[in-house]
Design a protein around this nucleic acid. Structure first.
Length: 558
RNA sequence: UGGGGCGUCGUCUAAUGGCAGGACCCAGGAUUUUGGAUCCUGGUGUGAAGGUUCGAAUCCUUCCGCCCCAGCCA
């Protein structure tokens, strides 16, 4: 109730604009550059864009910011669309490209030249930098700053016509080389660049810069609220300068803090380095914070959206504990995932007092959180597999599982007692000989009897073998930059992926399709990977169950 | 030494001059046919110092700390 009244600062700004009549509707946009895959930080951005539009009855456009042909490709356009849709957002027929506006942008540039507010500059990149001045000192005017309008116009047209080599000249806004805000020191609007553009092909040899293209694109689309991240705050005066000089629709830019997560990196540059350096298997490696990586890992769109909602919207730099993301996934999957018994490190168990070929079918609940999920039947026989970790020759204190002479419950089945362990020549335990109690069918404890431990198991004869990939944090430290040698890559977690073969699961899992998610009882949530083959499924662990026993043990060791 | 931002439990985030609350996390406990889930309890927080006020996280002053900006990237 009071929840509904809580507004973050962008909502307050939008409502104030509406109330003041600055705008009479809300239009936003998500402007990705098609030069890489979207990560969860982008998801925060576009969920704000789409949610704000939806909340105030407006629309959100998808607009590719494709002003730099040297690094943009169609491949990324498709991937970006897929990821946004996967999260549940839709731009209907409003998918645009900054390159759609190149002609209009060019005409507006001529207009600024004619108005004496832009000029063609012949300075080299090095000279431009030198003239720009420093953070504390003013810059110097370019010697070309006072070229007559006619000359500027002529030169600019010839730039477009391809008469000059790449980088030879630029078109610059004529603002103020002494401005304390560096962005106002005659920013470049156009550079000469002969590169194949993914949409306009080789139609252009001059390309607009971000500053020149972005605000004008917003204005063309009549975007009311142009929401972006904090580092563009310094650009807002320039954003507004162009719009004012042109006298076009006055979009309003509002900045918010981008999303950061512990135990991972979020910059495109670093993610690319991980991929190209072979530190991960690709952009969709389940350890990556990319949306395709999270999807492959087993994350649900619902969990991610819930996470984004909890993270909030503010202007202070923040780093969210990745545990919150994991919590959101567990909460979602706990409610929805079908439970199944799967043994990751099998240890054979022979029930000595169970008839040789007798098989009994026992009823198992599919999801205790959801009665509608129903039940299934699981076969029980003389030979089973349990988790190797569920047996200890010398059990530590508070160990509730199997040990010589101890009794436990096999989930949905019977109580069993460990009679003795069978060893191989090296002395390793390779098999447990146990007895079962017929009076405990279904796992029911006869009056007055209790067991502390309940184990999962599978029938050896019926189990399907599978492979599993256990994922952990990509970096061992919360902040990868906290490296003694200054290289964030030294904090890469050497155990971020553990691959296990020869796991055994209930037979039903053989039919699972890529993307299906399950809870492996007592282990965690797992997702079928696309690398699965018929009869040989591969599972990715999306997130482990909370494990208080593991915590107790870790505390004992540390 | 310039400009633009930001400082509330360990981490995020509320409060809009009137009891500093929630979530995650952590620590206990209850319960449990998942050491899961659920429930309960607890956890030295308003960067600092002054000022205004009956009353300040909130308003004023000064200071301190952190982030961003010197691409023809976005």
């Amino acid at each position: 109730m009071s929840e509904d009244k809580r507004r973050h600062f962008i909502e307050e700004a939008i409502e104030a604009d509406l109330a003041a009549g600055r705008f009479d509707r809300v239009q936003t946009r998500f402007p990705p550059e098609p030069n890489g895959y979207l990560h969860i930080g982008h998801a925060k951005a576009f969920s704000i864009d789409f949610e704000m539009a939806a909340k105030y009855g407006g629309h959100c456009n998808l607009r590719f910011d494709d002003t730099n042909p040297t690094r943009e490709e169609t491949e990324y356009v498709d991937a970006i669309k897929e990821d946004i849709r996967w999260l549940g957002y839709d731009w209907d027929d409003r998918c645009f490209y900054a390159s759609d506006y190149f002609e209009q942008l060019y005409r507006w540039a001529e207009q600024l030249v004619e108005a004496g507010r832009a000029y063609v500059c012949d300075l080299t990149p090095d000279e431009v930098r030198e003239h720009r001045g420093t953070l504390t000192g003013p810059g110097r005017n370019s010697p070309y700053r006072d070229r007559p309008v006619a000359e500027n116009l002529d030169l600019f047209r010839r730039m477009r016509a391809g008469e000059f080599p790449d980088g030879a000249r630029t078109l610059r806004a004529k603002i103020d080389m002494a401005a304390p805000n560096l962005n106002m020191r005659d920013p470049v609007m156009y550079r000469i660049l002969r590169a194949y553009h993914h949409r306009t092909r080789d139609e252009w040899c001059i390309y607009p810069t971000y500053d020149w293209a972005h605000g004008q694109s917003d204005s063309i689309e009549r975007v009311t609220h142009s929401l972006c991240s904090l580092e563009f705050e310094d650009h807002r005066p320039l954003y507004e300068w162009f719009i004012r000089e042109l006298g076009i629709f006055p979009s309003r830019q509002i900045e918010f803090a981008r999303l950061n997560l512990t135990h991972t990196v979020m910059s495109k540059r670093r993610l690319r380095e991980l991929v190209e350096g072979g530190y991960v298997a690709g952009w969709d490696d389940p350890r990556m914070p990319t949306l395709c990586g999270l999807r492959r890992r087993g994350y649900t769109p619902e969990a991610i959206r819930d996470f984004l909602k909890r993270v909030g919207v503010a202007k202070s730099d923040s780093v969210i504990d990745i545990a919150l993301l994991e919590h959101c996934l567990r909460e979602d999957l706990n409610r929805r995932a079908t439970r199944v018994m799967a043994v990751l490190r099998p240890l054979k168990v022979v029930i000595e007092n169970w008839p040789e070929d007798h098989i009994e079918e026992l009823e198992a609940v599919n999801n205790p959180e959801d009665p509608a999920a129903g039940t299934r039947r699981v076969p029980f026989g003389r030979e089973l597999y349990i988790e190797a970790d569920d047996y200890r020759e010398e059990p530590p204190p508070k160990y509730f599982r199997l040990a010589p002479g101890r009794e436990v419950r096999l989930k949905h089945a019977y109580f069993i007692r460990c009679e003795r362990a069978v060893r191989d020549e090296a002395g390793n335990v390779v098999e447990l000989r146990c007895s079962y109690d017929p009076a405990t069918r279904g796992g029911e404890a006869p009056a007055g009897r209790r067991v502390k431990g309940t184990l999962h198991w599978v029938s050896a004869r019926h189990a399907v073998p599978f492979t599993v990939r256990l994922y952990d944090h990509l970096f061992v430290t919360p902040d990868p930059d906290e490296a003694p040698d200054g290289d964030w890559k030294t904090n890469l977690n050497p155990r971020s992926l553990e691959r296990l073969e020869g796991c055994r699961a209930e037979a039903g899992l053989a039919q699972a399709a890529a993307g299906d998610r399950f809870q492996f009882l007592r282990h965690g949530y797992f997702c079928v990977d696309r690398d699965s083959r018929p009869g040989a499924p591969v599972f990715n662990r999306a997130v482990a169950l909370r494990d208080t026993w593991a915590k107790v043990q870790a505390g004992r060791v540390g």
